[in-house]
Design a protein around this nucleic acid. Structure first.
Length: 267
DNA sequence: CGAGGTACCTGACAGC
DNA sequence: TGCTGTCAGGTACCTC
């Protein structure tokens, strides 16, 4: 499921395929997933492709932005010609046609995915709610400790998934970062030492960087444009029976989300 | 205001 | 085989 490293990987691939291309039209096949306004786009060039949290931002030369959220099962497929294969057609929610006859499908399996057209004010409003980017140089250890101290009674794993707290971390990387930092996912922030939180800040950043370097994690329905990532080979606890030190993994539910952790390593 | 719960969706899979 | 039930999970929205 796409979290920050998977979205970053997809953004890099989209840049190599469709940056500076001109959209001749975009056709919607699923009005639940795709903004109605998208059909107004004609003869617009994609001038920038960026990521913020788990959002993909395609900037158009009319200053509007196509904002895409893949949720769990959204994916893109690029076609050098207008021929679209049958598998892509089955889940196609939108299709971009470019003036050079290439095309891009946006496929939505679970229909949670969203593709919106936003003006600059709407974009600003959406992005302003998000917390800091964990890989941004300004996201220092001190910054993280300060944020943690603002909600001492919160459960640490819940907070890591809160996009207004830190942007881009999802269920898999939250669990993996906590394992590497040897922190129990049920701990309240005030019960975790500053030293451990410092380690957690470091593990969050390294785990995301390592995953980006490997093209992300490939589980269940996550695809990207050029094959798959292989960070799943480095997962320690997510959907595992034993941790790397051969201790049995425990499983519980927090806020309706599953959590895997090692009770031996994560006291 | 913050915290917690749930709806939204469909595919995969287990069990009968 | 084919049905039913459960689980997966990011975010918006609701209630307390």
């Amino acid at each position: 499921m796409p979290e920050l490293p998977e979205v970053e990987t997809i953004v890099q691939q989209l840049r190599s395929k469709i940056l500076d291309k001109t959209i001749s039209k975009i056709k919607s096949y699923d009005s639940l997933v795709v903004d109605k306004k998208i059909s107004y786009i004609k003869n617009q060039t994609i001038t920038n492709i960026t990521r913020r949290a788990k959002y993909i931002l395609l900037t158009l030369n009319n200053q509007h932005t196509i904002l895409v959220h893949l949720r769990m099962t959204g994916h893109f497929q690029y076609f050098p010609s207008v021929t679209i294969d049958k598998i892509s057609q089955k889940y196609r929610a939108a299709q971009f046609n470019f003036t050079d006859n290439s095309s891009l499908t946006f496929n939505a399996i679970r229909r949670f995915e969203r593709l919106l057209l936003l003006n600059p004010q709407q974009l600003q409003s959406t992005l302003s709610k998000l917390g800091p980017e964990p890989l941004d140089p300004s996201f220092s250890t001190q910054h993280f400790l300060t944020l943690c101290k603002q909600t001492p009674s919160s459960i640490i794993k819940t907070k890591l998934l809160d996009q207004t707290f830190i942007a881009g971390i999802g269920n898999i990387y939250a669990q993996e970062a906590l394992y590497r930092a040897k922190i129990n996912p049920t701990s309240k922030i005030k019960d975790i030492s500053s030293k451990s939180l410092t380690v957690l800040h470091h593990t969050i950043r390294t785990i995301l960087q390592q995953s980006i370097a490997r093209g992300g994690t490939t589980v269940n329905n996550y695809f990207h444009l050029d094959g798959s990532g292989d960070f799943q080979d480095l997962l320690a606890v997510y959907q595992k029976d034993y941790c790397p030190k051969k201790h049995p993994i425990a499983h519980l539910t927090q806020n309706g989300r599953s959590t895997y952790y090692c009770p031996t390593c994560q006291k």
